[in-house]
Every structure is written in structure tokens, then in C-alpha cells.
Design a protein around this nucleic acid. Structure first.
Lengths: 141, 141
DNA sequence: CGTAGATGTATCAATGTAGGTTACGTGAGT
DNA sequence: ACTCACGTAACCTACATTGATACATCTACG
């Protein structure tokens, strides 16, 4: 199954933007991500609607960070990009009133929910500021 | 994104098979799952290679359980069906030597690994026998 | 102003994967 | 022999993400 790399991409972009306060155009970001400008606008639109970045049109326009990196977690970004499914594992619903199916799906569902809660907790515990700090520590200039 | 319902399907089938020791043909199972026989053979082939079921050709042939339900966990079945990716979340690898990308992917990777370990642990803690027992408890005949 | 630069968005194509479908080979039982 | 059933390959279909193109709209600059 194809994976959704939007979270990874957006974090990548945000950290680069944080290190260089100049506004960046969609095209510049697209080049950075080896994709094209429309994809960047589409994906970053989620971050804009959530208020984590701002965009401006016209000369000298582009994207800028509009939040305190220490106040925004990886989970916030995850939600802003709008990923709807986390797991590739799904349920069989061929016979919704089959009681066996219900027991099976409940068991799988509980395991998935548990893992999902864990993932969310982990993503919530790391802020963009933490990542920026990790970068500075691991790769001092 | 389309989900992989093979685990759910296989558990569904196994529990039905456990309740009726008669061998079942691929076509019977396909009808049970609202799919077709080739898909059943393809998916159950994994369980056969792992030794959890046996198949026999010819008259009176079909699929039978070949394991102790109490010794096989949901995780065993999960592995037998051969799911390779658990999460829809992936990594951006547009610039493998970008240090920012590395920090970001490490952070996401740790969160995912943690959640995956949790999921595996949960799936390992439930046996097919447990599910069969849950069924009997929840829906006594 | 008019023009160039930028986003916002709609639309279509490419791509990858699970599942569906068909077909045929092979072995087992009658 | 014939039928039943699995084993497997090949190809198609459905669907979601991403890529690509186009165009409207807004903004700054000369």
C-alpha cells in the first residue's frame, strides 16, 4: 500500500523555514521536496487553515511560519495535513450481522485503537521546537 | 486509501471453520466472504505455508484447521497473511542526505516503531482460542 | 495603471496496491 | 475416464495519493 508522506514532508519544510526566516515560494519548497508547486500549495493549505503558516500573494510573497514552534506538536501537524487513516489494516464487513465477524473485528479494533492512542501520545510529546533543537545538537554548525 | 482486510477475513474464516470441523472448499469460503475462490486460495495459501491450515484436493477436499487454536495468536495470522506495511504514514526521501530530513524521519520513525511494538504485543496476547471463547460467552447458543 | 509574481483551486493523468476475474495445470477420489 | 478441488499465473478493476497543467485572483512594483 502506498504511504502518505505528507507529515514527513511538512515537518521537513517547516524546519527549513524555521532556519531561514525569508518567505519561501511554493516553487522553492517544491524544489526542496522534489515535487511541484501545486502539490505544495495543496498540502500546505492544511497548515495555513490551522494557522501554523501564512501565505502571501504577489511580489515578495510566499509562505512564512506563523506559530511558536515550541507550542506546536508533531500531532498538530499530523492533524493539519488531514490524514484520515493511520493503519493499512482494515475490517472485513462482508456480513455485518455475522456475530463471528463482530468478535473478530472488535478484537482487531481494540488492538489498533490501543496502538493509535500510543502513536498520538508520542506525536504529541514532540514539538517542532524539539526537532529544531535536536537538529542543532546532532549537527552543530 | 484502501485498507487490507486479509487479517480480518482470515480470522473470520478460521473461527467459522473451528465451529464446524467439516472441510470447507474455497468456493464455500468465498461465498462466506462475498468474494471468489481464487482470492481465498491466494490468501489462505499464506496460512497453509505457515502450517495453520491444510488443504486437500479432489472429492471431499477443501480446507481444514491444522493447529491448536490456543497456540496461535492474532499476530501469527497477521504474519502468515504477509502484510508488509502497517501504517499509511511514510517518509519523505526526496533528499536522503538532508540532515533535516533525517531528524524528521527519525522522530516519526520512533513514534511509529513504538506504536507498532504496541500493536504486535496486543495481537500476540490474543489467541484464536480466546476469540472462540469470547464468541461463546457473548453469544451463547 | 499595466505587468509580473505569487497563491488558490479545479481538473486530468500517472502510479501503486488490494482485490476481482478468468484460465489452466495438477492431484485425488468416484 | 470423469469430476472435484486446489495451485498459480495473468490480467483487469477500483480507488487514493501524487504529479501536472491551467487559469482565476490578488499584490507589489515601476
Amino acid at each position: 500500500m502506498r504511504t502518505d508522506s505528507r507529515l514527513s514532508r511538512m515537518l521537513h519544510v517547516l524546519l527549513h523555514m524555521a532556519r531561514d526566516q525569508q518567505p519561501k515560494t511554493s516553487q522553492q519548497i517544491a524544489t526542496m521536496l522534489s515535487t511541484n508547486a501545486a502539490v505544495v500549495r495543496r498540502t500546505m493549505g492544511g497548515l495555513r487553515r490551522a494557522g501554523y503558516v501564512q501565505s502571501e500573494k504577489g511580489h515578495g510573497g510566499g509562505w512564512r511560519i506563523a506559530c511558536d514552534l515550541n507550542q506546536v506538536s508533531l500531532y498538530d501537524i499530523y492533524q493539519a495535513v488531514g490524514t484520515e487513516k493511520i493503519f493499512t489494516i482494515g475490517f472485513d464487513h462482508s456480513h455485518p450481522d455475522c456475530l463471528v465477524e463482530r468478535v473478530v473485528n472488535d478484537a482487531i479494533g481494540e488492538a489498533l485503537s490501543d496502538a493509535e492512542r500510543r502513536l498520538i501520545k508520542r506525536l504529541q510529546s514532540v514539538s517542532l521546537g524539539d526537532l529544531a533543537q535536536q537538529f542543532s545538537r546532532r549537527y552543530p554548525t
